[in-house]
Design a protein around this nucleic acid. Structure first.
Length: 293
DNA sequence: CCGCGGGCCTGAGAGC
DNA sequence: TGCTCTCAGGCCCGCG
């Protein structure tokens, strides 16, 4: 469930302890995540300074003083947790970490400040890999990504253009990371409800025959921006696995208008519909068949 | 090239 | 209570 808002929440939580901070060492406790951790990861990170901690789509990018970039993905159940070394007698000994280790703690970053940053991922769909900064934009995982939905490049003209020849549904199009990067099942459903557009609508109807944006394309762009902004402000959505870096839950699940609300009343003002669940491309879609057209 | 469906993985929750 | 089954979904890959 980490989609863009959850990843962004994690990034903001990690900033104070990781950005412009030095990594003393990295411990890879369980290397067999979705892909094996780079065997030389610990060596390449030891002693390096984090120049910046950024995000692209659902990826976290740890940019290092060595011009390496550690590309990290939370998969389905990944989380980061910050703890601080509390051993008084052996500074830097990190005895605290050993005493608080949890099941599925796969990677631990020991910062020079005494902060410990632990990556936990029960289902191991997450991964970390190293690339050179110069190779990042051309990296297979990055190169085909569409624009950031909160950036200037994501607008009605661009969205209409990307969808104008698509025979698939709006749900499938918005879930496609090549069209716009960072949305997942939850926020696609939520954005479509806010825009009052049916998830079953053909994606090409965002464009006129001339390829120009139809008015609903602008509506959808604004809905995507709004739902992501609100979700980030709430610290993301915690259904099962998402946690902020201090262990607190995100709160946006309380603001869902359709997701996981099958059978409940539609919250649109004046709408008498009820939320329905259907399956599209193998995933649950929640929507109101009355006000979403 | 496109889009669909399977597979990866574990824990939570339902049902018997 | 305890077992088994299903489902959750981000992403890659193979297939048609």
């Amino acid at each position: 469930m980490p989609e863009l808002p959850e990843v962004e929440t994690v990034r903001r939580g990690l900033l104070p302890v990781m950005e412009r901070a030095r990594i003393l060492k990295v411990e890879a406790r369980r290397p067999d995540l979705r892909w094996p951790l780079p065997p030389d990861m610990a060596d390449r990170l030891r002693g390096k300074t984090v120049v910046a901690l950024t995000r692209r789509a659902k990826y976290l990018l740890l940019e290092l003083s060595s011009d390496d970039v550690l590309l990290m993905h939370l998969g389905m159940s990944g989380s980061f947790r910050i703890r601080h070394d509390e051993s008084e007698h052996l500074p830097g000994a990190f005895t605290h970490e050993r005493s608080t280790a949890q099941p599925h703690d796969h990677v631990v970053f020991y910062m020079a400040s005494g902060a410990m940053v632990t990556f936990n991922d029960p289902r191991r769909f997450g991964f970390m890999l190293l690339t050179r900064r110069d190779d990042l934009q051309g990296h297979p995982l990055i190169r085909s990504l569409g624009p950031e939905p909160l950036g200037n490049a994501f607008d009605a003209a661009m969205l209409a253009q990307a969808c104008r020849n698509k025979k698939t549904s709006l749900k499938a199009a918005l879930s496609d990371q090549r069209v716009v990067a960072g949305l997942g099942n939850i926020y696609v459903c939520e954005a479509l409800h806010r825009a009052r557009l049916s998830p079953k609508r053909q994606a090409s109807t965002l464009a006129t025959r001339a390829g120009l944006p139809a008015p609903r394309a602008q509506t959808l762009v604004e809905a995507v921006r709004a739902v992501l902004g609100d979700a980030i402000e709430a610290g993301g959505s915690s259904l099962r696995d998402h946690r902020q870096t201090d262990g607190e839950l995100g709160l946006f699940q309380h603001s869902f208008r359709v997701y996981d609300r099958e059978g409940q009343k539609c919250v649109t003002q004046g709408c008498r519909g009820a939320v329905r669940r259907i399956v599209q491309v193998g995933r649950s879609t929640f929507y109101c068949p009355i006000c979403q057209r």
